[in-house]
Amino acid sequence: MGLAGVVLLATPLVATAAGYGPAAVREQVESSMLVRGEVQIETDGTVSAVTLHREEKLPRGVVTLVREAALQWRFEPIVVEGAVVKAIAPMSLRVIARKGEGDSFEVALRGLNFQRFDSEDPQNVASLDMPPPRYPEQAWRTGASGDVYLLVRVGRNGQVEDAFAEQVNLGFLSSAAEQRRFRELFARNAVAAARRWTFRTPTTGETASQPYWNIRVPVSYRLSTGTVPREHDGYGRWNSYVAGPRESAPWRDAAQEAHFSPDTLPEGGVYMADAKGPRLLTPLHGG
């Protein structure tokens, strides 16, 4: 799988009593890779072809794992205007690796998303003004990094009515208390920024008359210098972090999110949380 070079996060920020310090938190560390591509769905719901984006950047073992699993998927047949049709659906999923016994790793698929980011589609919510959040000073001073996965409720006037951090993954090791504190810091910071955003709301399609829309926006806090060239953007590399707990927004039914993982959404997009996509009938690993 190409895991030999994975670096498990930065030096701990603090040291604390046994059971609550970085050693205990290290057990929560996982390494993952976000893989994107497309699947071709036949009229009977089976998958006839799998295309992986920038396949040459992916470890061969990951390519084999994803392709073999996807070719076993079966979807609910896709109906357009009363007729069952073939379809090509975008996909993004996370390949997760956890340290096992000795030098072994347990590798699995977790979370699958079929949403396409299309800011030009008048049926979608699209950004008008989304100033990025300022890096929290405390996090900047300590070198803390993380990813916040926001659920945002947008009203008919394009203003944000509410925002909620569904998950916060951290890119460093520290005590459990410090992890919790920085998750809350990043979450508050991202939510505060989101409340100032404005959006273009849908003007056509089935959802155009809704009183509000739910969207998802990934927000990354990473210290960097300058623009990262496309060929060095990290795609195809393992990323290690301490995965945060999944939380449900108070205005959402948790059952709606039963098979969804927020961190399957690639950075840089605005995603419709209630968009209808292909419905997978088989387990994620196929069969």
Rank of each mutant, 00 (worst) to 15 (best):
V125N: 05
R252P: 06
G205N: 12
V270W: 01
Q179Y: 00
V217R: 09
L52C: 08
V152D: 11
G236H: 07
G102Y: 01
L128T: 11
R180Y: 08
R196I: 05
H232C: 13
P262Y: 03
D103F: 08
G158I: 03
A208E: 06
S174L: 08
S174G: 13
I96W: 00
I88P: 02
K99P: 02
P136D: 11
F75L: 14
Y235C: 05
D274Q: 14
N239R: 15
W213I: 04
P266F: 04
Q179T: 08
A258K: 12
L173I: 04
P250V: 06
P266T: 07
H285A: 14
E55P: 00
S31W: 06
N239C: 11
P202S: 11
T51P: 03
G5Q: 14
T46M: 07
S127N: 05
A89F: 02
L52Y: 04
E178L: 10
A49M: 01
V125H: 02
N124V: 08
R246W: 04
R153D: 10
S48W: 00
S209K: 13
M130L: 14
A254N: 03
H232A: 13
G5K: 11
G171L: 10
V85L: 11
P90M: 01
P245W: 00
A23P: 00
R216N: 15
D263A: 08
